[in-house]
Amino acid sequence: MGRRRLFDEDEVVRAAVGLFGGRAYDGVSIDDLVTHLGVHRNSLYKTFGSKRGLYLAALRRHLADDVRPLAGALASAPDAETALRLVTSADLGLLLLAAVDRAPADEEVAAEVAAALAAVDQAVADALGTTTALAAALTAAALGLRLRGDPDGARTALSRRLDPLD
Rank of each mutant, 00 (worst) to 15 (best):
R102I: 04
L44I: 05
A99M: 13
G53F: 08
T130N: 11
V120I: 15
R85C: 08
L86Y: 05
R148G: 14
A105P: 02
G49Q: 02
R61E: 10
R155V: 07
A90R: 04
T130R: 09
H62Y: 05
G72P: 14
G2K: 05
V120C: 04
A64G: 08
H36Y: 14
L56N: 02
G22P: 01
S89D: 12
E112T: 07
A125T: 04
V120F: 11
A141E: 07
D79S: 12
A114I: 10
H40Y: 12
S159P: 10
R85G: 14
E108S: 13
A137M: 03
L117E: 12
L59K: 01
D121M: 08
V12I: 14
R68V: 13
D26Q: 10
A140L: 09
A110E: 12
A127M: 04
A83Y: 08
L84A: 13
D91V: 07
L84S: 03
V124D: 01
D31W: 12
L54V: 15
D10G: 11
G149C: 07
Y55E: 11
D32Y: 14
D8L: 00
G18H: 06
V100I: 14
G27S: 07
V100H: 09
A114K: 15
L147V: 15
R155C: 11
S29V: 08
V124K: 06
L143K: 06
A136S: 15
G149I: 11
D65E: 14
P151H: 08
L94C: 06
R5E: 02
A135V: 01
V34T: 10
G72D: 15
A24T: 05
A115M: 02
S50G: 08
G149D: 04
P164V: 13
L158Y: 09
A103D: 10
D91L: 07
L6F: 03
G22L: 02
R68G: 01
Y55I: 09
D65M: 01
L97C: 02
R4F: 03
G144T: 10
K46C: 05
R14K: 15
R85V: 14
V39M: 00
R14H: 07
H36P: 08
F20S: 00
K46M: 11
R161W: 12
Y25S: 05
R3Y: 06
R102L: 13
G38V: 01
V67T: 11
L95G: 00
E108H: 05
S29Y: 14
T47L: 00
T156N: 04
G49M: 03
S76T: 15
P151Q: 06
P151G: 00
